[in-house]
């Protein structure tokens, strides 16, 4: 079981290499971002890359957390 360290909103997290970033964030907070016009809190919904509700910034580019495997040194920013 290989562990990697990643930063989420400036805080360091440890997770198993290859595990889903969505799961790592969800374990810490169910809300990832705000909806576009009503600014409602949103989190994981479909878990397979179709709904885009789990969109976060990974190393400066938008990514769906649920289909992103964690990597050593990854830098993640969520909206919430």
């Amino acid at each position: 079981m290989k562990m990697v360290a990643l930063r989420i909103n400036g805080k360091t997290f440890e997770a198993e290499s290859g595990s889903s970033l969505g799961g790592v964030i969800h374990s810490s907070a169910a809300a990832f971002r705000q909806s576009v016009t009503l600014s409602q809190p949103r989190g994981i919904y479909c878990g397979m890359g179709v709904c885009f509700e789990c969109t976060v910034m990974v190393d400066g580019r938008p990514a769906r957390a649920c289909i992103t495997p964690v990597k050593e040194g990854m830098s993640v920013e969520t909206q919430l």
Partner: peptide, 29 residues
């Protein structure tokens, strides 16, 4: 998923059954 809305379905913590299965399998979460 063949998704259907219901009252309150957009709350964080509400997800599809498949998403629950994937969370467990792919992140031990």
């Amino acid at each position: 998923e063949r998704a259907l809305p219901f009252k309150g379905w957009t709350l964080p913590g509400v997800m599809t059954a498949g998403a629950a299965q994937r969370l467990i399998k792919t992140s031990n979460a």
